[in-house]
């Protein structure tokens, strides 16, 4: 329906201060993800933080836009959601 979009390229324009020591997004239970048939997080996340790789969901929290969609969009509420630590994460130049 829609052509593929390279989200990494898109997000490349956005500024981040990555917190290497604290991953602010966590999956509560990988088993729950295995049972989830639709895995909508792979699609609705506007930053493409959730990817499917080698049979499981992988999170790249580094490029998270902190919108909070996954906190409520996950059908099983299986995501432990927090903001990055103070001063880290997305830092809009325009907003």
């Amino acid at each position: 329906m829609v052509k593929r979009v390279n989200i990494d390229e898109k997000i490349g324009a956005t500024k981040f201060f990555v917190d290497e020591e604290y991953a602010h997004l966590k999956i509560k239970s990988l088993e729950v993800c295995e049972k989830c048939s639709s895995k909508p997080c792979l699609n609705f996340c506007p930053a493409g933080v959730y990817r499917f790789s080698e049979g499981k969901i992988v999170i790249s929290y580094q490029a998270c836009l902190e919108c909070g969609s996954c906190r409520v969009g996950c059908p099983f509420k299986n995501i432990l959601w927090d903001y990055p630590r103070g001063g880290f994460g997305v830092s809009y130049k325009f907003g």
Partner: peptide
């Protein structure tokens, strides 16, 4: 609406690009 994106399994940035 987030519910629409979740239900239809859509990528918002692909809709934007289109």
């Amino acid at each position: 609406f987030l519910s629409t994106l979740v239900d239809l399994n859509l990528k918002p940035y692909e809709i934007l690009e289109r």
